[in-house]
Amino acid sequence: MKALKSAAFYLLVAFIVFIAVFPFYYAIITSFKTGTALFQIDYWPTTFSLDNYRDVFNQGGFFRNILNSVLIASVTVCLSLLLAVTASYALARVRFRGRGLLLMTILAVSMFPQIAVLSGLFEMVRFIGIYNTPWALILSYTIFTLPFTVWVLTTFMRDLPIEIEEAAIIDGATPWQIITKVFMPLMWPALVTTGLLAFIGAWNEFLFALTFTSSTETRTVPVAIGMLSGASQYETPWGIIMAASVLVTVPIVILVLVFQRKIVAGLTAGGVKG
């Protein structure tokens, strides 16, 4: 009976793992198939060819798209963290009137539907003259990365022991020195986690990227993949799409797996603690 129970349990576990991993696995084996092999359904790797990967880069612009994505996500995250570190110190550690309201507003902005600001942002982007440049995306991504980083860093900052800050106050540290000399060195794991989560958010963004770019050279990876098409409208180049998908997913998956404990902590800080 007991053996049966534990066998059933492991079967369930195996099922969960299978469901979670299979689509990614299938994308990988598809990406190694070309020609007619593509249209034979195989559960195991049968052929191995890197042609699709070569074609992704030959299609023009994909390397550029990756560069765009990396650049845009990195700049957005760095700017957000820069603004968020000082702001979250103020929100977590200083008692002032209107703090609760401000935090509530920040939380509300982070749950904003992006579409609600689309037309206003579109006008702004056109007006500043940054349409179809990376700056349009850096600007618009701030709308969700900034409230998110502020919120998560505030919850992290709240958990830092208060006596350390008080010791620094007695030692004569100003608020700026408390942040830079005492808290920042303690916060770097939190900064990495928050930065990583914000990076993933920016890396995956689609709506703004689709709307504020118009040429192949300025697109980000998700838009590029969304728009990959074959010679004719009716022929979807699945092999190339899967190769591109694997290319942009593998680094993220590796990052997530490396930082998995920290990511779980970051997600729950943003979610459950509230």
Partner: peptide, 10 residues
């Protein structure tokens, strides 16, 4: 001041 938790900078 000497704190209960020592409050050393880790």
């Amino acid at each position: 001041m000497v704190f209960q938790s020592y409050a050393l900078y880790p």
